[in-house]
Design a protein around this nucleic acid. Sequence first.
DNA 1: ATGAGATATGAAACATATTGCATATACAAT
DNA 2: ATTGTATATGCAATATGTTTCATATCTCAT
Lengths: 185, 185
Amino acid sequence: MSLKHAILGFLNMKPFSGYDLWKLFNGSVNNYWSATHTQIYKALSELAEEKMVEVEVIQQESAPNKKIYHLVGLGKKELIAWLKTPLSLPPVRDKFLVQFSFSDALDDRDIIRNIESYIKRVEEKLNNLKSGHYTDYLKFARSKREKFLWENTLKHGIQSYENELRWLKGCLRGFKKSFTGSDKK
Amino acid sequence: MSLKHAILGFLNMKPFSGYDLWKLFNGSVNNYWSATHTQIYKALSELAEEKMVEVEVIQQESAPNKKIYHLVGLGKKELIAWLKTPLSLPPVRDKFLVQFSFSDALDDRDIIRNIESYIKRVEEKLNNLKSGHYTDYLKFARSKREKFLWENTLKHGIQSYENELRWLKGCLRGFKKSFTGSDKK
DNA sequence: ATGAGATATGAAACATATTGCATATACAAT
DNA sequence: ATTGTATATGCAATATGTTTCATATCTCAT
């Protein structure tokens, strides 16, 4: 499970609670993995069973008690081993492309509407990434090297969505040019 | 389930058996969705239960019997409705980026090795896509519009992997320039 | 004061995907 | 002769992910 490795990776920086980790994941502080809180709590209790992490309970009055998870020897070993394993490309599973490639069953107008609506979503995402909300955590990098890795991870997201947008706009232009006028299949 | 919609999309072109569909999916004729044969057979029997498709059994002597699935009214309606629904961006879940962003725990050499190994995999994939193995089915397009959609779906794959490669090579160059020499963290 | 939202955790049910096993025939290559 | 590959289907177990529900306190705004 790669979620567990992502958690071990975070805990290698410093101890976190499940709630902290959820915010790190969802707040898209880094934009390469998403997870729900339920998933994270479950993974953490499994990691504790597997002796990869240790729990420290913090009594709190201002809010419910916290469980802080610490990375221990076995977990660190597992993390390093995983970080060194060569990964293969993830399987592609893109709903939009499924929709797009079967769209000959639709009217021209519906096809154009779909592309335009998806363009809007990608643009929103891109503005969000570029807005700088997500550059704050770069300050917490503990070395130039770590900062380099984080900056480039962020850049990956921006570059990917820019590329997606380029493709979408090219499609829209091409489609309108070739098929507008004949608005029924 | 989007797998079911992809299946309905294929059956809208012409009737297929589960085995045919598996080849269409895995043979990466189109490169935007992957599925195992087990998954496909299960989805087909569920679609039959839901009255979206109908089964026709073909007796064969040269090979085991075939079940050919036909799209019927209800399935066609469901397909058209789904094709028109605006989709949101898929969640990002990229193992390589998880590995990359936590790699400060590794030596320079291991980081470089990881990037180089991933570059090779992306290049293989790209050569594969560009080789033209997957352009044959474009001939089966029944309209200029359908051909346009399929060509652009293929182009999406190529453009995405080219973009990935650009990013990877930029990272590698940047990393070597900034950190080579100090080979321990 | 009343409700919304943040903090904090987790069980249970459901949905989806992967891996391994199982079966059976035909044809081509070694 | 035997191995491998293609055809053709599907069950069972496991892994992974999402959604819904449940609980409990504090703070801030209306």
